[in-house]
Design a protein around this nucleic acid. Structure first.
Lengths: 339, 339
DNA sequence: TTGTATGCGTTATCAC
DNA sequence: GTGATAACGCATACAA
């Protein structure tokens, strides 16, 4: 900066003012300084700036997996909104490792980020505490996609999963299925997942009961979808339709069903959740429930800024609607035929 | 830090020494300080530390797309290696936008990162200059996956694409295909892609010529695979096999071929490139050429540290071998039958 | 083994 | 409008 100031025959403070578009600098000086900055290819040191100004324009984002396509799509929403607002994103991939999540949370804190958007594979004590602690220090914290509320300092953004699974299950019930299996999310010792309660509720609303053997343990990955489907297929009376906890698991289920010589959807219908990109391209194309990832990401970033500007207001909880997307894997009516 | 020092009844410098594991502190003091640090939940300010020490333990990574699964798998290799070495990763997704790439390059520079690992959709002047400029300033820069050499200050890491496409094409020739179509990568005005030259070389090595209409323009996305396949299918003599520039495009090709009522691989065989995760799960499972993403990522991070420790040595060029992975889409012999 | 002073590259608060 | 000066939180050299 000194070099620039000297070359432009002004003081450091003037250079700083020009760079930060402050008022009180003559147009002539402004232009000259900008010219020198460009010529010398001067890049201001953000570390020094943030240190002095006691604020940064970087928000931290922690996601559990960069490999599950759900998160990249969320991140795009965050990034686009961040850029629009002049912020940049420090993205951290915890690789489905709770320890790494905490490490990254600490790292971001040491980086004095302006705000945090965090997702997790498993809500545990350490993670909850870390988030609340940050929020308590006045750093805007957003939990997305949230499974539940987290005090009144942490903004929670979630899709209405229960409603989403009611839609998915209703779709299959409407198609006449009587025995529908469900592969559940990873079993949480605490309360039941809204994905499972949605599945049950859809049945209950029609006065139907779900045989307990029709709900099998699963997870978010293809392999767990395969295992879940295998378990459902070896029932004495296998279901004629399967609801998966997400699209990855749905793909696993389809693989296993085909492997066992059954057809999808002719013999067994499958419905996923999330509507990741590959859902449209898979064969059969996945019937699924769209979670508005991109918009959720955008909203998360907006929430960070909202809290930055209004730190006193209690953190809100934002719930997004989901949409059933009927394609081929459910055998339902489809909007456009492909194969 | 002052708070900690006061609570531990020592000076700031002692606290600093304890945190950075410097020698010259009594075990007793060390333990006491650590205790206070934990109790006060003190997180050192990395901005201040890096500013003072004139070096940081953060490396920047710029990728063109977070949605194309190839990059996430590369990033995992980078991250794992970084963590092992005590570094953290500032990940930036340029979203296939050349302008954003430059913006992120500048941002990382302002952040005074310890090193840079960059990928790009399109090598253009601005990008090349930005990389060289950074490298010229002594910042370790790694270009991965590289399309070509970039001066002797920038480390280049690449898979042997030409060799890879020879393998893919050989595989189809071995299966007896006489007319093989190729969907090319995005057409670069400069030199031809090694992916195309590999395709041609495989033919030439057997004394075969490729009819010009068999090479159609394409790109990295599903949609471009669909378009490419459509163009090949409407030839008066369509090919019996198709080589795609990557797995995403291969999936697009398969979708289009099925849409036109042909079967894969019975009527038309398809081979992809990259071996992204979905290749294994798609139906038909993709025959493809494995690029060792993870290892390439690891190596990239190692290269950053190598250059950090030996700035004088000229930047190396590292080429990785590829592996043909035979699955179902090519109709070749397969290792394990699934459906 | 510990304390004190200086400076890293900025921004902010003053006078001029 | 502009120029000096302090301070941000830490690491380092040096003195004690």
């Amino acid at each position: 900066m000194d070099d620039v100031a000297r070359a432009a025959r002004v003081s450091k403070q003037t250079v700083s003012a020009v760079i930060n578009n402050k008022s009180g600098i003559s147009e002539k000086t402004r232009i000259r300084v900008r010219e020198i900055v460009a010529r010398l290819d001067y890049q201001p040191n953000l570390l020094a700036g943030s240190l002095r100004a006691q604020r940064s324009f970087t928000v931290g984002v922690v996601i559990p997996s960069i490999t599950n396509p759900f998160y990249p799509e969320l991140v795009r929403g965050i990034e686009d909104e961040a850029q629009r607002q002049g912020y940049s994103v420090f993205l951290c991939n915890a690789d489905e490792n709770s320890e790494k999540e905490i490490q990254y949370l600490d790292l971001l804190r040491r980086h004095r980020i302006a705000g945090l958007i965090a997702a997790t594979i498993r809500v545990n004590k350490a993670w909850t505490e870390a988030l609340k602690s940050l929020a308590g220090q006045g750093v805007p914290v957003v939990f997305v996609p949230s499974t539940h509320k987290l005090g009144n300092q942490v903004v929670c953004i979630m899709a209405d999963d229960e409603e989403g699974f009611i839609k998915a299950t209703d779709h299959l019930l409407d198609l006449g299925h009587e025995r529908i299996g469900m592969i559940s999310p990873p079993v949480d010792t605490k309360k039941p997942s809204p994905r499972v309660t949605g599945f049950l509720k859809a049945h209950a609303l029609r006065g139907k009961k779900v045989a307990p053997e029709l709900i099998v343990p699963g997870g978010w990955h293809v392999a767990e979808g395969q295992e879940g489907a295998a378990q459902l297929l070896q029932l004495s009376r296998p279901p004629t339709a399967v609801v998966a906890p997400n699209d990855m698991a749905a793909i696993g289920a389809i693989i296993k069903i085909k492997e066992r010589g059954r057809r999808v959807p002719a013999d067994i219908a499958v419905v996923g959740y999330d509507n990741i990109a590959i859902a449209e391209w898979y064969d059969p194309a996945l019937t699924t429930v769209d979670q508005p990832h991109y918009r959720m990401g955008q909203r998360a970033m907006q929430a960070v800024l909202d809290r930055l500007n209004h730190p006193e207001e209690p953190a809100e909880m934002i719930k997004f609607e989901t949409t059933l997307v009927v394609r081929h894997s459910s055998g339902g009516r489809v909007r456009s035929s492909r194969f």
